[in-house]
């Protein structure tokens, strides 16, 4: 069986299912026996979800205003004025 260090290195790839089938199975086998690595796996899952939902998507109003005007100018002139 692979070690904790080896399993931990591959957890995100395991979640992404980008490991080779044998490596995916090896991590799976390790997780069936190792509570600590299950904690690592759960945290990797939470961190992925956190990144997807907490990355700033704010559009400051002044930037929105300038970009909206840019779009309007595209429509009006066929290219920005």
């Amino acid at each position: 069986m692979i070690s904790c260090a080896e399993a931990v290195k591959e957890l995100w790839e395991f979640l992404d299912q980008t490991l080779a089938p044998d490596d995916q199975a090896a991590v799976d086998e390790h997780l069936a026996f190792c509570r600590r690595c299950c904690g690592e796996l759960q945290f990797a899952r939470e961190l992925r979800a956190f990144l997807a939902t907490n990355a700033s998507r704010e559009l400051p109003s002044e930037v929105r205003g300038r970009l909206t005007q840019f779009i309007v100018d595209l429509d009006r002139n066929g290219r920005p004025s």
């Binding site: 990355a55 700033s56 998507r57 704010e58 559009l59 930037v63 929105r64 970009l67 909206t68 779009i71 309007v72 595209l74 429509d75 066929g78």
Partner: peptide, 24 residues
């Protein structure tokens, strides 16, 4: 852009996706 309705469709689409584009 060939006609007015197409231009209008572009404008609507572009404004809708501004927050996501700026964030990226």
């Amino acid at each position: 852009m060939t006609n007015k309705s197409e231009a209008s469709a572009f404008q609507q689409m572009a404004v809708e996706h501004l927050p996501g584009l700026f964030a990226l």
